[in-house]
Design a protein around this nucleic acid. Structure first.
Lengths: 226, 226
DNA sequence: CGACTGGTTGACGAGGGTCAAGGACCGTGG
DNA sequence: CCACGGTCCTTGACCCTCGTCAACCAGTCG
C-alpha cells in the first residue's frame, strides 16, 4: 500500500461501511510536517508484513492491533495501540509486522522520509527515539509475561495494563474480542474465557458484559499479576 | 552502581579472578566522545534492574545476557549481546532490565547524558534510533517465538539465530549454559536438553560437546523453526 | 582424588490446548 | 414484533506438551 487509500480495501468479510476518507494534506502543529488523516473500517488492514513502509501513523481514535503471523496461521499480537500512540516506523523501509483496525479507526499519517530529512525535525528524531525506547521496554516486559507467567497471571497483567492505559479506575471497556486478547497473551480464547471466569468467581472482577469489566479488588488483581 | 568500578563486585559466588580495570577515559573515534574501557568477570553484574542508568555499553569481547526477574525467581532473558552490540540505554535514567557477563567481558562505557547533549552527536542519536528500532524488531520476533512456538521450534530458531549472528557456517560455539538458553526460550533446561537430543537423533545437528554444535542439515533446521 | 558446575535422561503429573456443543447478543428483514 | 443469521463467548471432556523431581554422568580445577 504505497498510496494511502485504505478505506477502499474492505476485502476480508462484509464490513460496516467505512467512514469517508479525506486525503488532503493538512498542517498539523505536531512535527512541523504535513499529515494526512485516514479512516479505517473494522478489521481492515492498515499495513501488512512485508509491505514497503512509507508512513508513520498516529492514532486519533480507535484501537489498532500490531501482529506477526506464522505460515500456518498462528498469530502473536505484539501490541495494542490506543489514541495518541504512534506506530509503523521501521528501520529499513519494510514492515516486519502488520497492523489492523480493531474497530473504526482514525489516524494521521506522516510521511516517514520527509520527517527524517527535515532539518527542523531533530525534535522529531528525539521524540521517535523516546517512543521507540518505551516500546522496546514494554515489549521486554511482555517477553517476561509470555516466557514465564501462567494463564491467570497473564490475564491479570493484561487487565491492569488496560486499566492504566485507558486512564479508567474501576470500570474497563475492552475494545477487542477474546481472540485478540488470547493472541496477545499467547493463549487460546477458551483459556482466556476460563481465566475471566476464575477472576469473576474469586470476586476480583465483575463482568457487566464480555467487553465491560469492573475491577472490584485492584489489590488482589495486582497480586495475581505477580 | 553510579561510579563504574565493577570488577570489584565479585559478590555472587566464588569467581575466577577478574581481569584488571583501566578506568582512564580514552578517546574513541566512534561517537566523538570519550569512553571508558571496563572488564567484567564471569557471572558478574554489569547493571541491575532499578539502578540508575548513566552509561551506554558497547561490547568489545565476550557475551552479555540481559534479563528480567519475577519476585519468585522466574527469569526471562530478553537478549544475548555479542561483540559490537550496544546495550544499557533507557528512557528515564532507570534500568528496567539487568545485564550480566556470561563469560569474561570487555566493554566500552559511554556517558549517556554527554552523548545526547553533545551537539556534534546528532549522528549518534540516529545511530541509537537505528539500534533501538532493530532491537525492537528482534524483540517482536522473540514475542512470536515465546507466544506461539513449541519447544523444538524454539531451539531450532535459537540455533539459527546464533549461527547467523556469529557469522559461522556449520560449526557453532555456544557461549552460554543450558540454563541461560532455557530462560531465553521460555523453557526449562531439561526441555532444552531434550530438544538438543531430538535434533541430534534426527541427524540435523551433531553435538561435539554440550557447547560445541555442528549443523549438519541447515535446510531441515530452518524448516523446523517454522 | 574429590568437589563442583553443568548436562542428560527417565518417570510422572499438571496446565493449558483441542474439540465440541450450546448460549448471548446484535442488526437486519420479513 | 419476532425470526434469523452472524459474531462472539462460555463451558465441558479429553489429551498432549512440557514442567517437576530425581538420579546419574561428564568435564574441570584445586
Amino acid at each position: 500500500m504505497l498510496t494511502p487509500n485504505p478505506a477502499v480495501e474492505l476485502s476480508q468479510t462484509q464490513m460496516p461501511p467505512a467512514p469517508p476518507v479525506f486525503p488532503q494534506p493538512r498542517d498539523e502543529g505536531d512535527f512541523h510536517t504535513s499529515s494526512v488523516p485516514l479512516n479505517f473500517a473494522r478489521n481492515s488492514e492498515i499495513f501488512a508484513e512485508g509491505e514497503s513502509a512509507g508512513y508513520v501513523y498516529k492514532i486519533v481514535s480507535g484501537v489498532v492491533r500490531v501482529s506477526k503471523l506464522l505460515p500456518d496461521g498462528r498469530r502473536q499480537i505484539s501490541a495494542f495501540h490506543l489514541p495518541g500512540d504512534m506506530f509503523g516506523f521501521e528501520v529499513d523501509d519494510v514492515h516486519h509486522v502488520s497492523a489492523e483496525a480493531i474497530g473504526p479507526v482514525k489516524v494521521l499519517a506522516y510521511k516517514w522520509q520527509s520527517l527524517l530529512s527535515n532539518t527542523s525535525s531533530s525534535g522529531f528524531v528525539h521524540e521517535l527515539l523516546n517512543r521507540t525506547m518505551i516500546g522496546l521496554r514494554q515489549t521486554q516486559d511482555h517477553l517476561l509475561l509470555l516466557g514465564r507467567k501462567n494463564a491467570l497471571e497473564r490475564l491479570a497483567a493484561f487487565l491492569i495494563e488496560m486499566v492504566r492505559r485507558t486512564g479508567s479506575d474501576r470500570s474497563l471497556q475492552l475494545a477487542m474480542p477474546r481472540h485478540d486478547i488470547a493472541d496477545y497473551l499467547g493463549l487460546t480464547l477458551e483459556t482466556v474465557s476460563r481465566m475471566f471466569a476464575e477472576l469473576k468467581d474469586a470476586g476480583i472482577i465483575k463482568l457487566e458484559s464480555a467487553r465491560q469489566v469492573s475491577v472490584l479488588d485492584m489489590q488482589k488483581l495486582e497480586a495475581m499479576a505477580t
